[in-house]
């Protein structure tokens, strides 16, 4: 054995200081944001809103004059068409895919063992990814709304006969709907997040999510449908109504199913956190 002059050995007695939980969360979030680069999760967030808007745009571009026979402002019809196209099926599926893709970044890299061996608590790992998914979900919704309004304005230029340029955007209703739709996605987002974390696979949460969305569509007429978190975005989307006077209306307060969505969110996150906090990290 070669004896070596080792440089001063580390001081053993003093316990190194750990950063506070918020510092840990901030650092984990900075790392998680970097890992989003060039991922499908990011592309999905940026592009998913475009599809329903494009659909609504094309319908109005070619058939707008038939839809708007009665005259008056075209905005309410245009907005509710785009919103219902997005909210009924696409939005729940988007949330299912988004949560699965974000969690899969770690799973694919077999990085859970690495992540949990870093000097950050398990809570920081749990909440950092959650915050990231919540933020991406918000970005996608805001982009969608921006695209809807942009597409309407574009129709005003390309098809002035439809009258988009002549009428004001019902901004207040749009913003209220934006907030309520976001709340409506939180329940299924949390459930999907916990499922993804628990099974640490891509196929299982996507399968569970797709199955749940399809089952929800079949169960819509059930009296307890408002308690299913996967039904909430759909219910919020169709809750937007047009009055006889052609004014867009949406409730000022959270609907019952939106409260259920929040309850699911809180319940699933609490259960998931407790489940994952003490879990052994094998394989």
């Amino acid at each position: 054995m070669n004896s070596v002059l080792t440089p001063a050995l580390p001081e053993l007695a003093t316990l190194p200081a750990a950063t506070n939980p918020f510092g840990q969360l901030r650092r984990t979030l900075a790392a998680d944001a970097l890992k989003l680069r060039r991922t499908a999760a990011l592309r999905l967030t940026l592009l998913s809103g475009a599809f329903p808007v494009l659909l609504a745009f094309l319908i109005f571009f070619f058939k707008g004059h038939e839809i708007l026979k009665a005259g008056g402002t075209p905005w309410p019809r245009f907005i509710s068409l785009a919103w219902q196209t997005a909210g009924t099926l696409l939005l729940p599926l988007f949330v299912v895919l988004l949560t699965s893709l974000v969690v899969n970044i770690e799973t694919k890299a077999t990085a859970w063992k690495h992540l949990y061996a870093q000097p950050v608590g398990r809570g920081a790992v749990f909440f950092s990814k959650l915050l990231l998914i919540l933020a991406l979900n918000a970005v996608a919704l805001v982009l969608f709304v921006g695209l809807v309004l942009g597409a309407g304005a574009l129709l005003g230029v390309l098809q002035p006969k439809l009258g988009f340029q002549a009428h004001a955007v019902p901004m207040e209703v749009v913003l209220r709907m934006l907030g309520r739709t976001y709340v409506a996605t939180l329940g299924l987002l949390a459930v999907q997040y916990v499922v993804s974390l628990y099974w640490r696979s891509f196929v299982v949460p996507v399968g569970v999510g797709m199955g749940a969305v399809v089952a929800t569509v079949a169960l819509l007429s059930w009296e307890h449908a408002d308690k299913i978190p996967y039904a909430a975005p759909l219910m919020t989307s169709v809750s937007m109504r047009m009055s006889k006077a052609g004014v867009l209306e949406a409730g000022h307060e959270l609907a019952k199913h939106e409260w259920y969505s929040l309850a699911w969110c809180g319940g699933a996150l609490l259960l998931g956190y407790l489940l994952l906090y003490r879990r052994n990290m094998t394989t």
Partner: peptide, 18 residues
């Protein structure tokens, strides 16, 4: 958490983001 701040580890195959 405090102790892991002084530990570096490579467990089985490295965890890399491709």
């Amino acid at each position: 958490v405090a102790l892991l701040g002084r530990v570096g580890a490579l467990i089985e195959n490295p965890s890399l983001y491709d």
